[in-house]
Nucleic acid binder design. Structure first.
Lengths: 344, 344
DNA sequence: ATGAAAGCGCTAACAA
DNA sequence: TTGTTAGCGCTTTCAT
């Protein structure tokens, strides 16, 4: 009942036999280590082709203790993995980078604390060489788990604690927010409100900081907390409107919240950007380009952040490989950029 | 330079020694095979706990030829994996099912034909016990690749060819479309147009069929082809309006296209649903609940479809396991359901 | 530069 | 019921 084609799979032994060399030599050629004379190497390569040989990863892992696989762990998909293209895009970047370096991506989605034990076991099981952690809460135990398992780790988004050897990749949330508000100020806006994300996430806090950098001493009632959903954005917009009827601009901490805000403004017949200008954050294209009017926003290169995370992790996994292995590894803050559309 | 914690990892040998039994007995306990007397088993379990033993998967795979891992292969992410939460949701269902059966999910994203070779090698490499294939085009070579690699496969969405042992999971596209149109007819609509998806995808074709089932002999100009993007939906809507100014309803083959259509209608001051009723397809909640007005649509249980794919594949991988292994495996068509919101 | 041989940690016959 | 033993396919010293 076992699969015939698997049974057929040629081993290194077979390749060696066909090429008339020892298994050791065949192995050397397959792994590209030098010190095999050209003609021999050529014969081995031909044998590989003819037989359609593919190395058995399990056997290889058993001896090298290398998996060439990396886990992507997403804490609580319900939060964002669902509707937000954010993670999807990031995963795509990760996938590209991993692929380029012949690593595989093992996806671990968790539904809550109960799953953490399973993830911990998995990481401790040495199935992967490293882990990329996403969507952590404030006091998430996942990083500790990974550390205990002895698995090198890189975190997506600045964690709430800071710690010498915690590596993360995040965009310049604070600088981006500052740019957004500065742009509004340059456009002559004076009564600028802020729709913040949930303030137990660092991204929200950092964006709020940026807002304050540009607008120190803002009346707290000009700031409303949302939750990164359209509904939350709508509620926050309504609150803002109530507290400050003479508002002339809003900076929302995410495009998705901005879309909820725009909706409220439309419903009330408030013209955007004439009466109130709106700036978002993220540049989730499928959202920002399709709001009415299209959204001016702060762009972060999400896919690139994914790539960087993967690259960082891979260097952490095997410090020697790839790059000119000099500089110590450190966290990365990627730049943001204002994208002007119609809403501001 | 190798990770200390990995070096420390106890082997089965160590467990056996500590429990004072042979490696074979320890293995039996760990793998839950019966025939080990209770007290011995207990001692082994204690040793496992004390040592924090976790089986080495590579060693296990090497002998069992089982990976307990499944690949999810997505052809051309640019198409949908990007903005469409569809795949994300499906992956989530897959993940849940796989997790429940102690299997891992290896994600393989491809960017085009060049990547197929890599995927083929990977599948042929016996790294995974099976593969789930998504977003195939009409003449996609991926299934052939997987077959050649001898890897059991289940496809997401009805493939364009049909073939005794090609297993797939899809929703009842045709029936759902029929229901949508019937609902419009029951509501008294008489001039009903259709915004189709790209007709080189079976989902689009099937939905068009369903439309025709309910409305045989429809003037071809009442049907406009979109491409599953908002832009495409908008263009198709404009075309429809031009050809049939007296339109009183539209059935769009996806929520995303419907959102584009709604936008055009709003721009032209056409009231929805008063002047023109709109029904979508998919029930992507983050889209359908947030259009203006919220979208009446045909719901498919995307996550459940993911679960079913995983379940089907796992049964195909090891026919004996799990269920009361009687019935032959067959493709699955899941039901759809009308969800009434405000647009129709 | 090449080959022989010793395992990596585990499971599964086979013996006892 | 338990233990002994032979590999699974590969990499990697160590000889040659």
């Amino acid at each position: 009942m076992s699969d015939p084609s698997l049974a057929h799979r040629p081993t290194l032994e077979a390749v060696a036999a066909r090429a008339g060399v020892s298994r050791a030599t065949a192995s050397r050629v397959v792994n590209g280590s030098d010190g095999v004379r050209a003609p021999l190497a050529e014969r081995v390569r031909r044998a590989v082709d003819e037989l359609g040989y593919v190395p058995n990863q399990a056997a290889r892992t058993l001896v090298t203790r290398r998996n060439d696989a990396v886990a992507v762990v997403v804490a609580e998909p319900e939060t964002r993995f669902f509707s937000d293209p954010f993670l999807t895009q990031q995963v795509r970047g990760i996938s590209k980078e991993l692929t380029a370096r012949d690593n595989q991506l093992v996806l671990l989605l968790t539904e809550g604390a109960a799953d953490y034990e399973r993830v911990g076991r998995y990481l401790a099981g040495g199935h992967v060489d490293g882990a990329l952690l996403f969507s952590l809460h404030d006091d998430d135990t996942l990083p500790a788990l990974a550390r205990r398992a002895g698995v090198p780790t890189v975190i997506g988004g600045r964690p709430s604690w800071s710690d010498a050897d915690t590596l993360y990749v995040d965009c310049d949330n604070r600088g981006g927010a500052r740019d957004a508000v500065t742009y509004l100020l340059d456009g002559g806006r004076r009564r600028i409100g802020h729709i913040a994300g949930p303030l137990d996430q660092t991204a929200s806090v950092d964006r709020l900081e940026g807002f304050r950098d540009a607008l120190p001493g803002t009346d707290p009632r000009m700031i409303a907390e949302g939750d990164f959903t359209p509904e939350g954005g709508a509620r926050a917009m309504a609150a803002l409107l109530e507290h400050c009827p003479d508002l002339d601009a809003v900076f929302a901490a995410s495009d998705v919240m901005a879309s909820g805000a725009l909706r409220v403004l439309r419903t009330r017949g408030i013209k955007v950007p004439e009466d109130i200008a709106v700036v978002g954050f993220d540049d989730i294209v499928s959202v920002a380009e399709w709001t009415d009017p299209p959204l001016t926003t702060i762009r972060q290169d999400i896919e690139e952040m994914g790539r960087m995370m993967a690259r960082l992790l891979l260097r952490r996994v095997s410090p020697s490989a790839g790059d000119a292995d000099g500089p110590a590894l450190s966290s990365i803050i990627t730049p943001t950029r204002l994208v002007v559309r119609a809403s501001a």
